[in-house]
Simulated assay, not measured.
Amino acid sequence: MSPLRVEFAGEWHDLPPDRPFIIGREGDLEIDENPYLHRHFLELSHHDGLWWLANVGVRLAATVSSAGGAVQSWLSPGARMPLVFERSVIVFTAGPVTYELSLHTHEAPYDVSREVQASMSGETTVMPVSFTPMQKQLMVALAEPMLRREGVSINELPSSTAAAERLGWSMSKFNRKLDNVCDKLDRMGVQGLRGGPGKLATNRRARLVEYAVTSQIITRADLPILDDETLQDAADADGD
C-alpha cells in the first residue's frame, strides 16, 4: 500500500490506513471555523487496494483534478471516487471563501500522458471551447485572488459587484457575460453552472472559478488582461 499525504496551508498530514481521515470544520484536518463549511465534509479512506475520497457533506461540492488539470471531476454530496494519480488537487468553496488542498502519493495506479494533458480541457470528454477576450476578463476577475496566491490555500471569492467594479463594467454587462460563460461551459458538460431554483449566484461563481483555474482555462499569465482597456469583445456563436 502506498502512503497518502495531505497538504493544506503548508502543513502536511500522513493518513492512517486503518481508519477514515476526516476533513472539515472539525476532524483530523480542521480547515477553518467558517460556519458555511460542513463540520465533516471530506473523508479519505483506504480499502480495496486504493485510497478513496468521499464527500460526506450535504450541501457543498468539491472540484478534484490531477495536478496538471488534465483530468477533473466534480464530487457532489454523497459521492466518492478513487484517487488514481500521484498528485491530486481539491478545490471547494464555502460561503465567500475558496479553499485548496493537495493529495500526494508515490505509487499511483495511473498517470496522465502528455498527449492527454495537452488535449484535455473538460471533465470527461475533450470538447474544444473558445472564449472572447471579455469572457476571459470576467473569469480572471473572479479568480484573481486564487491566481495571485503565493502558497496560500484560502482565498476570498469576489462578489459580482466587486468583480464588475474591477473591470469597470455595469452590473447588467457583467451578469450578461457571466450567463454567456456559464451557458457555454454547461453545454460542454461542466456540472454546477446551470441556474434555477435553489441555485445561489455565489455557488455558480464559485464553481466557475474552481473549474476555470483547475482546468487551466485561465492561468496567472492571464492577469494582465484585467487592466487591458484595448480589448474588444469579438462576436462568437452565442452572440456575446
Rank of each mutant, 00 (worst) to 15 (best):
R187P: 02
S159F: 08
M127S: 09
E165Y: 03
A141V: 01
I225F: 09
W74G: 02
A237T: 06
L138P: 02
T98H: 02
Q135Y: 08
V152K: 14
A70P: 03
F41L: 15
Y36I: 00
P82K: 11
V181H: 05
N55V: 02
A9N: 14
E86D: 01
F8L: 09
L15G: 06
R19T: 06
F131D: 06
R205H: 07
M146H: 09
P145K: 10
G24T: 05
T132E: 12
R25W: 08
A61W: 13
E210L: 04
A163T: 06
H47P: 00
K184T: 12
P109I: 12
A9M: 03
F85H: 15
R59M: 13
V213L: 09
G122Y: 05
R205Y: 05
M81F: 07
F174L: 14
V116K: 05
A164M: 13
L60E: 09
P96F: 09
P158L: 07
G196L: 10
D227A: 10
V84A: 10
A201T: 06
V89L: 14
A162S: 15
R205S: 01
R176Y: 13
R19L: 08
V71H: 02
G68T: 08
R149F: 03
Y36H: 15
G198E: 11
G10A: 07
H47Q: 13
F21Y: 12
K173P: 01
W74E: 07
L83N: 00
S45V: 12
S66K: 03
F21S: 06
R59V: 12
S73T: 10
G189V: 04
L37Y: 14
R80E: 14
P17N: 01
V152M: 06
T124G: 03
R87D: 01
V116R: 09
R114F: 08
A237K: 12
E210C: 08
G198Q: 11
R80T: 01
G57T: 11
V140L: 08
Q137A: 11
D222N: 14
S102V: 14
E100F: 05
E11L: 06
P197K: 10
A221P: 00
A212S: 15
E165C: 00
V140T: 09
A206Q: 04
N55I: 04
W52N: 13
S170Y: 00
T214N: 12
T161H: 15
L185R: 07
W51D: 02
G78P: 07
G151R: 07
V213M: 11
R5Y: 07
T161S: 15
A94K: 08
Q135V: 06
